[in-house]
């Protein structure tokens, strides 16, 4: 099997799976009916995209594992999502800040992945980007509404942005699989997205009357499977059914 391609796909898919899981936690718990529905809709989009990626990864692995096995039955150290997406729904400000900081990246990444020489990845990217453009609109819009809203909403979204900022740099770190796939014209060179990313993020923050965090200290590790303390709890929730009732299906 093409180990680099397999790892590369997981690198993309795990971000969406874990963020989808976080958004799904808000089902029935969102701050208002509309935002609740929006978060679960985005979760559904992300999980749908994830299915396409894991189906493809399962095909490459070719060892009998299914998309569900890959999604549900790995150990914490085997998930390679960035730390940003596993951060908890502390309050609506954190949920929106996390979404926004990921959406801007996600959109830029998919725009490049559309050009992949791998036709499967390019097709998934073309499909996903339409959905992700709605996500980005939603989260950017809320950044502005909260930032330029009341003092309370302003302070809380600023706190969330400040706290999550430390996880943004990792988005642009290359793994070994990344490097190999960029070489083959399959993968996206994430290092090249960094400038456009911060430019767009900072533009929205300015419009939202928010300060751009100055801290240059960044966390990393997710892409190597070293996660924050939140990840274990998230996986316990995500994997409960498959662990308790192995091989159960819908």
């Amino acid at each position: 099997m093409n180990q680099n391609l397999y790892n590369y796909i997981l690198g993309i898919a795990d971000n969406s799976l874990i963020l989808g899981q976080r958004l799904g936690e808000l089902c029935g718990h969102g701050p208002s009916l509309e935002t609740d529905i929006a978060c679960t809709n985005m979760s559904l989009d992300l999980l749908g995209q994830v299915r396409s990626y894991y189906q493809y990864a399962a095909k490459i692995a070719g060892d009998g594992r299914t998309e569900d096995d890959i999604a549900m039955l790995r150990k914490e150290r085997e998930y390679v999502n960035v730390l940003l997406v596993e951060q908890p729904n502390t309050d609506f400000g954190y949920t929106i800040a996390r979404q926004f900081l990921f959406d801007v990246y996600h959109f830029l990444m998919l725009t490049e992945l559309e050009k992949s020489t791998d036709l499967n990845l390019s097709a998934i990217a073309k499909k996903s980007i339409k959905e992700v453009s709605y996500h980005k609109r939603f989260s950017s819009d809320w950044i502005k509404r909260l930032g330029d809203g009341t003092k309370e909403s302003h302070d809380r979204i600023q706190t969330a942005i400040n706290d999550l900022w430390t996880y943004t740099d990792e988005l642009f770190h290359q793994t070994e699989a990344d490097k190999a796939m960029v070489e083959e014209g399959v993968g996206v060179d994430v290092t090249k997205l960094k400038e456009a990313y911060y430019k767009e993020v900072e533009n929205v923050l300015e419009t939202a009357t928010l300060d751009i965090p100055e801290s240059k200290y960044f966390q990393k590790g997710g892409k190597q499977g070293i996660h924050t303390e939140h990840m274990g709890y998230l996986l316990a929730d995500l994997q409960y059914m498959q662990r308790a009732y192995p091989n159960m299906e819908w």
Partner: peptide, 13 residues
């Protein structure tokens, strides 16, 4: 518009 997202993934309210 009430919300960009609606009762299913394809709709807004």
């Amino acid at each position: 518009m009430i919300s960009q997202f609606g009762s299913t993934a394809c709709k807004a309210q």
